[in-house]
Design a protein around this nucleic acid. Structure first.
Lengths: 187, 187
DNA sequence: CTCAAAGTTTACCGATCGGTACATATTGCG
DNA sequence: CGCAATATGTACCGATCGGTAAACTTTGAG
């Protein structure tokens, strides 16, 4: 049960769950893809739910690390980073493997608010919002909390619309709206 | 094969799919709930996918009718109706049966953009956006198309966040942002 | 080396999946 | 009424679901 092996399984499972969905992906197919046996899989993860939770933990880490770093690379100032989030999202949307937000999918398939998978999805969003709040505070913007929540709405909306792929580039629309809201918070 | 019977099945299936998800709901349980036999069910709907498509058609009709009417009831002017959409959403979020957007769930579980269920979900959003666009045009707002897309982002984001239930009332945040964006379009 | 602990494999479990063949009621038309 | 067409119910299909018992292979300590 070396950690690297386990991580490898989680990484593989992440890709398959992200492409195919959670309920639609059977443990058998995951086992077939990774090459290990089913019993070994169940030694690493007691249940499918445990595996999904591990996948979401990895996804949370990967996504937040990537987004935060990209926001920093794209802008120096805190307020600029808030805006730059939408440029980063635009880059994500353009990637061929983009399939929407994994946590939205997870909370859609496990809807009960008390379900661990649902809670973990909510936690992910809450951590993102907190990061935006801290940036807004550092930028000395008015109503930092409300602004952070509004930017979250734009972000989530953009991801949904980008996934539905019926319109050009929702990241640009979201960015324009974000600029307007940030400007308003400066007054 | 009276239409009323079929509609009754679709209505029942809608509730179950909305509560439990699509893949997580088996045809057997739908059959058990409605009291009819499996063969009769498959006489009305050739496949599960057909049933889901019928469910989404009904949901589209119900939801758009309800939202459009509520927007009209809450505001007389076109620009006011755009804002009132977020009050209507707030009412929806407060209902005990609220479980997020059925079309987001559908497109999450059937991700392939070429899949009929995915396409129908995109169509639903596109029709909503068109309605917002027409209201924005009637209100003689600048950049009506862009504004409509931005309001859609706020709407979708609010539904996602409301479903995750970690924050107070996203409809209020969305409404404030919408007011700011509409005001900006007036200049 | 010995030998037990840990990890892995094969083969399988009952339950449920979407879907159907076939026999039985029910219906509308002459 | 007679009787075919239509709708329904029973019983079942192979495939797959999440998960496991038991045999086998590898490994590390003495």
């Amino acid at each position: 049960m070396r950690p690297s092996k386990r991580d490898e399984l989680v990484q593989k499972a992440l890709q398959t769950f992200y492409r195919n969905g959670f309920h639609a992906t059977g443990m058998d197919s995951l086992v077939a893809e990774t090459g290990i046996s089913k019993t070994s899989m169940y030694k690493h993860f007691r249940t499918k739910e445990d595996l999904i939770l591990a996948v979401l933990r990895l996804r949370d880490e990967q996504f937040r690390n990537w987004l935060y770093r990209r926001m920093e690379e794209l802008a120096g100032e805190s307020s600029g980073q808030l805006i730059a989030m939408f440029d980063a999202l635009g880059e994500w949307f353009a990637k061929p493997e983009f399939r929407g937000c994994m946590f939205v999918k997870a909370s859609s398939e496990f809807q009960d608010a008390s379900h661990p998978i649902h809670k973990q999805s909510a936690d992910h969003k809450q951590m993102l919002e907190k990061h935006l709040y801290e940036l807004a505070t550092k930028a000395q913007l008015n109503e930092a909390a409300g602004l952070a929540r509004q930017l979250m709405l734009l972000k989530e909306g953009a991801i949904i619309i980008a996934h539905l792929r019926y319109t050009e580039n929702p990241a640009i629309d979201a960015k324009k709206a974000a600029v307007a809201l940030v400007e308003k918070s400066r007054m």
